[in-house]
Design a protein around this nucleic acid. Structure first.
Lengths: 288, 288
DNA sequence: ACAGCGATGTAAATTATTTTCTTATAGATT
DNA sequence: AATCTATAAGAAAATAATTTACATCGCTGT
């Protein structure tokens, strides 16, 4: 089930004049469109109701009401979260804004993520004898540790490094059984790109999770593109971290499934260890 | 505009027998309810169409179609993400599942987060001369570093510790100007609770972001409850981390706003540093 | 037992939506 | 330039959905 707003944007130019008028009304006044009857919407766009029906069909809906439901679903993210910059002051507004950014970031990732890249990286992790996760800077180093945190539970030999020099030195010791994963939000980390190239030079597999077409992406064989628009407000925390977390999640989950049998044992051991150590309650999820 | 699903849950017991049947159908089969006509829905619930209309009115909607729109909006997360456990195998299913878990986790947090707690913790951070973020274990130590990563940019003096002994020792050196924030998904980290109590004993302010009513929550003066249902599948990564990230986000964002003037300068400096150091492009977001 | 009230269904009325058919219009062809 | 064709779009009719008005049922309290 595709996002109707996205479909609308993509198809707009292929629509007839009247239909474009409807499209524009829908796009600019989602709130109105979602609540209007076909007659009201037709009147607003200055067309007849049948034209609206045809418009809905062209967008892949069987009926106007199906269109409205789809619009309401898409517009949920839209109306609730993709609002333009609003002046934020009350605590509730802060909460709504933060949640909105997080949700819409995830939504954008979901729409754009390339399944094949996820799969290729997961497959390579399964093949490698050792995985090195590289990331620098407040956020990306976090991601490197997240990769380590997620993979070690699955019995993958993995380590994380957040230090440029260390990354470069490590890269030069690698061989064919090794794999490097570079993590960078901006993709402009030259040192990381260099480390990836060095590792590749020695035969190691290289992958990255970063901005598409960036130098880090170009420096690695496999790359999962995470392209997100970032706002300009300097106070705004980068919501990209949700997307990166999700990207790592996907890869780790896939790795877990692919090596299900061999992964369950390490997980069980970690869990037993934690439970015994901390308390008798066995309901706890792996790791705090 | 309140969430219709939440309203439904709250009001359910005040509804008549027939209306409860409708409520149950709606709740259990959102997907169906969103697409059904009033006649179909009435038939499924074994009631007459007017009863459905009355049901909608009671929930604060003027018409069935308004109800459906509201349901579609609320149920967007629901229909798309809160689906029961599905057998996951293809890469696309993995992606959908991961995104679904992330989205619904954030949704649950958004519905339940206590604004007052967020505010109290932010205020306390603003008052403190130094902040110590404590977290242990793969996930929670990540959160502690995230707190550090977020707050230092705002000019807050902050450090993170993931080591129990270190936490305990640190706690015993604190005083009235200090603040400790404990982060724990399960809330069952006894050492952390102990460290918080020790810090409080020496006059430091204590806060936690953890499961409500847990020992860690009880050991701290201020606590932001993050209560999330966790699945039972051991292979499943804990989606709680999205919620924790968001919780930290909220607090940091609020801190940023409250000390706007003094926060912008450190951010600008960090940014200039990064930009100069890495390349000429100034569009980059703070920190990789 | 029965008055009164809320809950529910039936059928009619209303309203919304879609289908069918017709007309208009832009571009293509001679 | 005349005419043809295909597409677009509206009018009116048909259908379907929804709501209203009203009748009935069944429970509760006297």
């Amino acid at each position: 089930m595709a996002d109707i707003i996205a479909t609308l944007q993509k198809e707009r130019d292929g629509l007839s004049r009247s239909e474009q008028r409807i499209a524009d009304i829908v796009f600019e006044e989602k709130q109105f469109a979602v609540n209007a009857s076909i007659i009201e919407l037709a009147a607003r766009a200055d067309v007849s109701p049948p034209t609206v029906t045809r418009f809905c069909r062209r967008l892949g809906c069987n009926s106007f009401s199906e269109f409205k439901v789809r619009l309401a679903q898409s517009a949920f993210i839209g109306t609730r979260y993709l609002e333009p910059e609003i002046k934020v002051s009350s605590t509730q507004e802060v909460i709504d804004t933060v949640m909105g950014r997080a949700q819409s970031t995830l939504h954008v990732l979901h729409e754009n993520v390339d399944a094949q890249s996820v799969e290729q990286i997961a497959d390579q992790i399964l093949k490698a004898k050792m995985v090195y996760a590289f990331g620098s800077g407040g956020n990306s180093s976090l991601f490197a540790h997240e990769v380590q945190n997620r993979l070690f539970r699955l019995g993958v030999r993995v380590t994380a490094s957040e230090d440029h020099s260390m990354q470069l030195m490590t890269a030069s010791t690698l061989g064919e059984d090794d794999m490097v994963i570079g993590l960078s939000i901006s993709g402009r980390n030259r040192e990381m790109a260099r480390a990836l190239e060095v590792a590749a030079g020695y035969g190691a597999a290289t992958a990255s999770i970063t901005k598409g077409k960036s130098i880090v992406a170009q420096a690695s064989e496999l790359s999962l593109a995470v392209d997100l628009p970032e706002g300009t407000d300097v106070l705004r925390p980068s919501s990209a971290r949700y997307a990166f977390l999700a990207a790592i999640d996907m890869i780790a989950f896939l790795v877990a499934i692919r090596r299900k049998d061999s992964a369950i044992e390490p997980l069980r051991r970690i869990k037993r260890q934690l439970v015994t150590y901390r308390d008798e309650d066995d309901t706890q999820v792996l790791g705090d």
